[in-house]
């Protein structure tokens, strides 16, 4: 039985900065997952990823990551790896957690 599709965001790393980025609804790459487009439909997600993959001069290694809407109606990461990517390392206060 095929697995049920769970909502996804498109995420990648910025080519110049290396920073974690997300694809927003308007096609822009943003640094905050809360501004990312959340895809509920598998086909839509796959075609958006293929499209994102074509501007590879901007970013490196785009992929789909599970996300869910939080109480404010904005996407939050699901898996702990993605949670770290929205924050930074746990041993120092560096990365996104320090930038925001």
């Amino acid at each position: 039985m095929p697995r049920k599709f769970t909502p996804k965001v498109i995420t990648s790393n910025d080519l110049l900065e290396g920073d974690v980025i997300y694809l927003a609804r308007d096609g822009e790459w943003v640094r905050d997952i809360r501004r990312a487009a959340l895809y509920d439909d598998e086909n839509e997600a796959i075609s958006a990823l293929a499209c994102a993959d074509s501007h590879r001069h901007r970013h490196v290694g785009a992929y789909l990551a599970d996300a869910a809407l939080n109480d404010e109606g904005l996407p939050d990461p699901v898996h702990f790896r993605e949670v770290f990517r929205t924050r930074g390392p746990t041993n120092y206060f560096h990365g996104k957690q320090a930038d925001s």
Partner: peptide
């Protein structure tokens, strides 16, 4: 080519 020069792309940065 970048790897042969020691440069990785990691979780949060290069």
């Amino acid at each position: 080519l970048r790897l042969k020069n020691g440069l990785y792309l990691q979780l949060h940065a290069y």
